[in-house]
Write a protein that binds this DNA or RNA. Sequence first.
DNA 1: CCGTTTTCCTGGAACGTTCCATAAGTCGAG
DNA 2: CTCGACTTATGGAACGTTCCAGGAAAACGG
Lengths: 335, 335
Amino acid sequence: MQMADADSRPTLADVAARAGVSKSLVSLVMRDEPGAGAETRRRVLKAADELGYHPDSRARLLRSGRSRLLGVVFGIQHAFHVDLVTALYTAARDSGYELALSAVTPDRDETEATTGLLQDRCEALIMLGPQTPAHALARLTTRLPVVVLARGVRGADVIRTADADGLHLAVDHLGRLGHQRIAHIDGGRAPGAADRRRGYREAMDASGLSRHVQIVAGGLTEQAGTTAARALLDQSHPPTAITVFNDRCATGVLDVLLRGGKRVPEDVSVVGYDDSHLARLAHINLTTVAQDVHTMTKLAVARAIERIEGADVAHRTIVVPPQLVIRGTTGPATT
Amino acid sequence: MQMADADSRPTLADVAARAGVSKSLVSLVMRDEPGAGAETRRRVLKAADELGYHPDSRARLLRSGRSRLLGVVFGIQHAFHVDLVTALYTAARDSGYELALSAVTPDRDETEATTGLLQDRCEALIMLGPQTPAHALARLTTRLPVVVLARGVRGADVIRTADADGLHLAVDHLGRLGHQRIAHIDGGRAPGAADRRRGYREAMDASGLSRHVQIVAGGLTEQAGTTAARALLDQSHPPTAITVFNDRCATGVLDVLLRGGKRVPEDVSVVGYDDSHLARLAHINLTTVAQDVHTMTKLAVARAIERIEGADVAHRTIVVPPQLVIRGTTGPATT
DNA sequence: CCGTTTTCCTGGAACGTTCCATAAGTCGAG
DNA sequence: CTCGACTTATGGAACGTTCCAGGAAAACGG
């Protein structure tokens, strides 16, 4: 009859046989649900313990139709994504859901990363700064709830920072320090770059500095920062302050300045974006616009779970205010 | 009849109904097994695509008793781990196994990361520079195959770089450039640090530079690098060359040197370790000891699969030779 | 003492796959 | 033709759970 094989794990049926009850009853007891007598309950637990029984989560999940899994698609090379994932773990900790990570690498695109998560039957997807075109995202949302972080897109739930406001903060700060020739090194087509460019322009206009507006093509990497910085320094009237698309790019800028014999912030002020761990390092000590990672991830998890549990309202965009973190790379204008 | 519910995901049966074939046949096609005609195969794939069907891995592995999952435990904050994970995806690509990522964060320790993977029924674990004590690792290996990357430990399969050799390469290179006062900023208790310290000592001895041996406490971060570098520069006779535990720490060192008015490599040469993407950046351009990420990850995946498929030999350590990558931070000694 | 509720328990049908046994058709050889 | 061998397809039994409908026995209220 029912024999617990030596090589295969014991099942509900094995425990039931040993305790002399039905499978259903054992199932109840294991889940700590009411409906079993005190004495029987003890007997079942004893039998389970003796057999070294552990419920098989795959079968459990299969039957109950739930995986309690939140899929996360992220770029493992992006410092800021790493910060977000770290915070997501914390945010998900007490929600009753687990995180399933799927990385985008130079050799593994977003489609592949997403497919993997779908096979794991994640109940919702949290995508960090996805590059997937809007229509493909829209198609995804018909299959399962999708929360997009750090990129604005129609047809999905979005949590993002008020990037334009972020550049207002940066420009205003520099303006108060007396800077006029404030340049911006942008992020090209990266998520958020357009908003930051717009914010920069608006803020310059609002401060009456329209004629000093100067936008240089940058990118997400140190490399992009060095190239852009060199271009700026080669001018006859280089800027006295630079706002940069993100921290990583800003470290490239800093490096060029230092090597070019410019002092920071005495000769040139620099403001980054993200407040990634890079910016906090004592020797970089970068003034930067902080995205509220804690709030964003908390909201993302909450939103995903709301969707899973049936909230069926229209997709909503939540915009989180940024905050300026003043450190050592900004100072009074001297020119 | 069989209707694809709007709210529930499509199953094999749905695809079968739409393509006008049996569930079994669809199953074959999805697994890319022989036994289906070319025309039918196409029809099935089309139907699956139209429905947006994705196989349910839980049901799949419940039935087959396998998960075909390799669990990866890694520190998401470590640049080098990120490089390794990236390469692991590539290495696993054609093996028939998938990767399940579980990150260690400041808020989520290795035990937690490991437990998660065990519940997912991974068939083997690949652990990157784990801090878990040896006896706990040993207990793990009784439950499933464990491959340890970038850390030497008894009682498990280990793939690591010949770290001592790495420092031989670095010191010899500096020696040939005429350097004598070559210091080492170490990695404390980090995996590999002890070997690198030893390699440094041996190489100095072998070059007849024993009396110039100087080891300063460092660590894995930029922060640690800055502290150590300051300590070195404060000396009456500062070294003309520095070997550093890893690239990240080395960037901290570089920063202190630049700010202190030292030119690199004219005044001081610096050698890093790992050849992480950090080192390759044009403006850092760090001479460094490269770990052969490609080979290491390939071996790790192969080893894990061998174990899964029953190889029951003793645990083995595979040591991969490092390679010196000469870039711009090393030059002839001038003192 | 009879109905009604409550408590404790059981059997069997799902969940979405894979795997096995088998069948129908095709083809070439004897 | 008939036989076997191959190819292509099918139906149904697992896998280890949970969930649902129900049933027997005990408890309760009148």
